[in-house]
């Protein structure tokens, strides 16, 4: 019960500021029709209720699952198995993420339908999969994440130079968008679970960085598509 109360309070505190700011803007600068404003307030209520349920659900569902899968995989001590499942999990989660579909329709608009939607979704998902696998590799062998990030972004900027400029901002969006509200808790706790077993409890902070690496994959994929189709 305490948990519910705490979550409820936290959610109230997290949506109150933006509601107040928008209300102030509404009655000073913007003056939208009142209908619209009431609809907004109802929306705020739904967002609040939704957040409470979501956070409670994530805490007893996705987070423990991610951690358990992460540590179960690590206990097998088979490196190729961990890396392969890292790839598979990244792939599946991304194909499922609704935001990826929104992104692909935007790309469709910008590129004038040159890039087929399926190919885009698949290549973004492969991008995420490859980088989650890389991240698993990093945790196992405790490679400094800075090298991976520096290398990744170096390739990004190199590719960006050869891609039609329209694709550049879209690719960076792809990186941000693919890591949505379902992917983040799952991948985050997966990394924490793997790190806890492979590197001991004290260094489970090594489990972070999965989301960061997972965001580079889609950037590279979209840029590559730009080079190919542009």
């Amino acid at each position: 019960m305490d948990n519910i109360k705490e979550t409820f309070l936290e959610v109230v505190l997290s949506i109150l500021p933006i509601t107040i700011v928008i209300t102030i803007l509404q009655f000073t600068l913007v003056w939208l029709p009142l209908d619209m404003f009431f609809q907004f307030l109802i929306g705020v209520g739904m967002v609040g209720a939704g957040l409470v349920l979501f956070l409670l659900g994530v805490n007893i569902g996705l987070l423990p699952i991610g951690e358990m899968i992460g540590s179960a995989l690590s206990k097998t001590k088979r490196i190729w198995l961990i890396v392969f499942f890292g790839f598979l999990l990244g792939l599946v989660v991304t194909i499922a993420e609704p935001d990826v579909r929104v992104l692909s329709s935007q790309v469709d608009q910008v590129s004038g339908g040159q890039i087929p939607m399926d190919i885009l979704i698949l290549s973004v998902a492969i991008g995420v999969g490859v980088f989650v696998a890389l991240a698993m590799f990093r945790i196992i062998f405790s490679i400094n994440i800075v090298y991976l990030l520096a290398g990744g972004y170096a390739i990004v900027f190199l590719l960006a130079a050869f891609t039609p400029s329209v694709f550049v901002p879209i690719s960076f969006d792809a990186g941000g968008v693919t890591t949505g509200p379902l992917t983040v808790p799952f991948i985050l706790s997966l990394g924490v679970g793997v790190a806890a077993v492979m590197r001991g409890k004290s260094s489970s902070g090594d489990g972070f960085g999965l989301v960061a690496l997972a965001s580079i994959g889609p950037i590279l994929s979209v840029l590559l598509l730009g080079v190919i189709y542009g």
């Binding site: 907004f40 929306g43 209520g45 739904m46 957040l51 349920l53 659900g57 994530v58 996705l62």
Partner: peptide, 24 residues
């Protein structure tokens, strides 16, 4: 139960964003 709560919560959240925050 966690999955069901996550599902209901995220759907409600996204719907609230769509009807409330997006048009505003």
């Amino acid at each position: 139960v966690g999955f069901i709560l996550t599902y209901a919560g995220l759907a409600l959240f996204l719907q609230g964003v769509h009807i409330g925050f997006l048009p505003v």
